[in-house]
Design a protein around this nucleic acid. Structure first.
Lengths: 331, 331
DNA sequence: GTGAAAGCGCTAACAA
DNA sequence: TTGTTAGCGCTTTCAC
């Protein structure tokens, strides 16, 4: 592997000149620059990442603590991560996978100078990692919105607003008894941030409008079918449903919607490409997963630049009536 | 951040002693070791990763080129990656996400000494990255099995054997006209390694046994429903199906299986937890996704250790009749 | 059993 | 506009 010294020798300049050509941190004559760039090209030179980060005290790496367990919203997680990667790469950052959920994994990555900043996903309402992050003075962004009031930047989809929006829409459609068929029980029990907020918004809006709302956990595979069947049997008065469970969606959407004899209004909350492919939905609310990732990363990069950012940034929900209507028409 | 010098000072020893305590590369007196360990503890010291890798010429990082696009088998990809992470962590390696598919991303990561080794996923039958890897002399493992005969270690599930197994089983069940409902068209057209091999095995085994087999691409969402409907209409003689498309599975499995009047034998090829939740399958073949990741990583670590490994390592398929039977009984 | 010191390949003052 | 050089924080040889 050639080093910067090899490049300097080949170009007949000093190593600092090579360094400055690469960083652009000082003006270089056209002629010198060209000679250096040629040498770099010729030698196929890439700077040694560790040497660079040792000297510059920056790694250009962002640590990512992401839930890789399958089961919970794989699509959403994937797309968020894809968005992060895209935005990071565009800014010459790499992503280092930190894949257990332990708080001290964050500490070690930071103290060992493996990363310049941290992205933390799958946040719970009262997440132990928050204290750790607060002590760490490394720029970090949470994807989620814990209830704790620590000075940590949070970026997420506004699940509470989505819950309100869905409830309101269902009521608008004439339903007086609505239900949220949501995440699997373990997700709710862990008080995963998004699940908590969705429930709060949905139930809150229903209460305000004097409508009865219930919340039902739901497995995210075909096991959802009997669960939903029982649920509908025990609550025959439910006429409007918000379905937030991408795994269960294909299995239970038709059943929830019902048939001509007993139709229900169903709103799906999931990535648009998933809801688009299910016919008969009353409406859909997109989870802009990729955007969440992009936005979280962009915010993190701003923090790295020393900028101030809003502590909480929530992407607003919107109904996709048009898309739903199209599907309904063609089906 | 404390450095190794701080630790040395606090323990009243030299820098090299601290280093050797950490690496275990020379014998240290009990007493000295304890003093050093105490100092490390007290100062909350973590060695600077870049400094270490600059001096030791090893990063303890594995580069991972993984397809983060949603759409294609998210569950499988996720679980493979999770398996990789698990095995890497257990051996004190981290994973750096390289997430465009370009060959020169591999080159840069290696030449820049960002990684010690590479894991490459989503391999096509004739993948341009293979040449790159061969030139790179960095240990690497492909997840997949390209047709090219380059000296590159490949680890994957044996999709060809799975295809044979499924065809044979379907024939055993009495079917004389069988079909593979598989990956989306774009996956087949890209000649993704696993899709190609599955087709080869399925069709090959059918031919050998004098049975007609056809292959049908299939969208991996609800769009699969009309596609499958048409397919069955146009080929009413199909009585046995191998379904390899986790996205389409919940949407089309019931339809493929049919009703009492017109039953078909359907074998699902997907992670076991997915097939388990679909009732009425004739059989299922597990894709041991997590194992693929673990195995690929383990093999890579062996290569890093300088060991020789078999160039091609395929995890054998097996029928899950028991599980399928259970599901059938309870449904 | 322990220490001193020479790098590893860069960046960024400081000098010219 | 360019060069010289002192580190960055480690590992590892060589010396004791």
């Amino acid at each position: 592997m050639p080093t910067i010294a090899d490049v300097a020798a080949a170009a007949g300049v000093s190593i600092s000149t090579v360094s400055y050509v690469m960083s652009g941190k000082r003006t270089i004559s056209q002629e010198t620059r060209e000679r250096v760039e040629q040498a770099i090209e010729q030698l196929n030179y890439s700077p040694h990442a560790s040497a660079r980060s040792l000297a510059s005290r920056a790694t250009n790496v962002i640590g990512l603590q992401a839930p890789l367990r399958s089961g919970v919203d794989v699509h959403v997680v994937m797309e968020i991560v894809a968005g992060m990667v895209q935005e990071a790469r565009a800014n010459r950052y790499d992503l280092l996978l930190l894949t257990d959920d332990r708080p001290d994994t964050l500490t070690r990555a930071t103290r060992g100078s493996q990363v310049d900043a941290l992205l933390v996903m799958d946040v719970e309402s009262d997440d132990p990692r928050i204290t750790t992050l607060a002590e760490l003075d490394t720029p970090s962004v949470l994807v989620g919105l814990p209830t704790t009031t620590a000075p940590i930047t949070c970026v997420d989809f506004d699940f509470e607003a989505a819950g309100r929006l869905a409830a309101t829409r269902l009521i608008e459609l004439g339903n007086t008894r609505i239900a949220l068929v949501g995440a699997p029980a373990e997700v709710l029990e862990r008080h995963t941030s998004y699940a908590d907020r969705l429930v709060a918004g949905f139930v809150g809006a229903a209460e305000e409008q004097g409508v009865t709302a219930s919340v039902h956990p739901c497995p995210s595979d075909a096991e959802a079918v009997p669960v939903v069947a029982r649920l509908l049997e025990e609550n025959p008065d439910i006429t409007g449903v918000l379905l937030h469970n991408e795994g269960a969606l294909p299995h239970v959407a038709p059943r929830l919607i019902g048939d001509e004899g007993h139709h229900r209004d169903v709103i799906a909350l999931c990535p648009a490409d998933l809801s688009r492919s299910v016919p008969g939905l009353a409406d859909a609310i997109d989870i802009p997963a990729s955007n969440i990732g992009v936005h979280a990363t962009r915010t993190l990069l701003q923090l790295l630049d020393g900028a101030e950012t809003a502590r909480v940034q929530l992407l607003p929900p919107s109904l996709q009536s048009a898309a739903a209507a199209t599907t309904a028409t063609t089906s």
